[in-house]
Simulated scan of single mutants.
Amino acid sequence: MTDLRAAVRAATRRLAEAGVPSAETDAVLLAAHAMGTSAAEVRKAMVLGATAPAAYDSLVEERAARVPLQHLTGRAGFRRLELRVGPGVFVPRPETELVAGLAIDAARAAGEAPVVVDLCTGSGAIALAVKDEVPAAHVYAVELGEDAHAWAAQNTEATGLDITLVHGDATTAFPELDGTVDVVVSNPPYIPLGMVPIDPEVRDHDPELALYGGSDDGLAIPLAVAARAASLLKPGGVLVMEHADTQGESLPAALARAGAWRDIEDHEDLTARPRATVAVRA
């Protein structure tokens, strides 16, 4: 039997050698998953001389092969929620919590019972976060990928949050809501064609449908989604859209040229990189 402290230290070294940037954190979280407990409890158990769980080494080797941590644990934290994720769905990122926050702020400012639409919902992260933090909101979400839609449905059921989730194309979704929506939020595919992500977790495991923006500048799909948002929103309604850190000027400029938007502003994430554009329907 292996001492838990020694096992976690060895796992941290193994993951660091494999290029995992958060090696120590991942080593602890994998131990927590294998033990069915929290990271805090793992750290206590390390001090108390507990034994490493039997499945730990195999989990560490999978992570060293750059299988996403969230695929191994089946869970991803997002704002106040814990979501179910796995193969076939884009793993929600910390930077997207900013995007959700901007949508939540816009929903709160819209009135007592705002109508919010999440186009390209993926795991359902943004839509469910909005409903969780703005309970009176009427939240709608659409996802094109079959696997991702299934994960979003699981998360909707698991959280018990009442949203309307449909399987379909974001560029044609919810025609019955045209001109009535207060906030549209989207984290669309936006990676330029030909630019392959460096991180193996993204390149090899996130679905291509959720990654590539359909053109050399990566903006073809985002702009098609924005056009749908323009139809959905009432005058004065708000669009919140995530983008690549290289699109902090190009996406606002493209929205300005479209003529449907005013008060276009770009927002940085916690690492001071351009991350989301907010625009008001003219």
Rank of each mutant, 00 (worst) to 15 (best):
T96R: 05
A170S: 14
L232H: 01
H138S: 15
V238Y: 09
T172G: 10
T172Q: 13
V280P: 01
S215W: 02
V202I: 15
R63E: 05
P200E: 04
L209F: 07
A150Y: 07
E176G: 12
R5S: 00
A27H: 06
V139I: 10
L83P: 00
T277R: 07
I104M: 10
G145Y: 12
S123A: 14
D269M: 15
A45Y: 07
D3H: 05
S215I: 09
E62S: 15
A125V: 09
L232C: 11
H149A: 10
A125R: 05
V67T: 15
A230G: 09
D182A: 05
K234V: 13
G218A: 06
I221V: 09
E61C: 09
A34S: 14
V202Y: 03
A210S: 14
L193V: 10
A254W: 06
H149N: 04
A148Q: 07
H205D: 10
G248H: 12
A55R: 15
E133I: 00
G124E: 12
A226M: 09
A272L: 10
A229P: 08
Y190M: 06
L219G: 01
A170H: 06
V116K: 11
L15W: 11
D217W: 06
T172C: 08
P207D: 02
A256M: 08
D3P: 00
Q247A: 07
A158L: 06
Q154I: 07
T37N: 13
L102S: 13
Q70G: 08
L48Q: 05
L161G: 07
A158M: 05
V91P: 04
R13I: 04
N155Y: 04
G248K: 05
A65P: 02
S22Q: 13
A279P: 02
F174E: 05
A106R: 11
F174T: 04
A23C: 05
A39C: 01
L119I: 14
T172L: 13
D217K: 07
E82T: 12
G179N: 02
I264R: 12
G124F: 08
L48F: 10
P135C: 08
E157S: 08
A276D: 13
E176M: 11
V202G: 00
G214A: 01
L223F: 04
L15E: 10
A244T: 06
M1D: 07
A34P: 06
E95Q: 12
L4F: 00
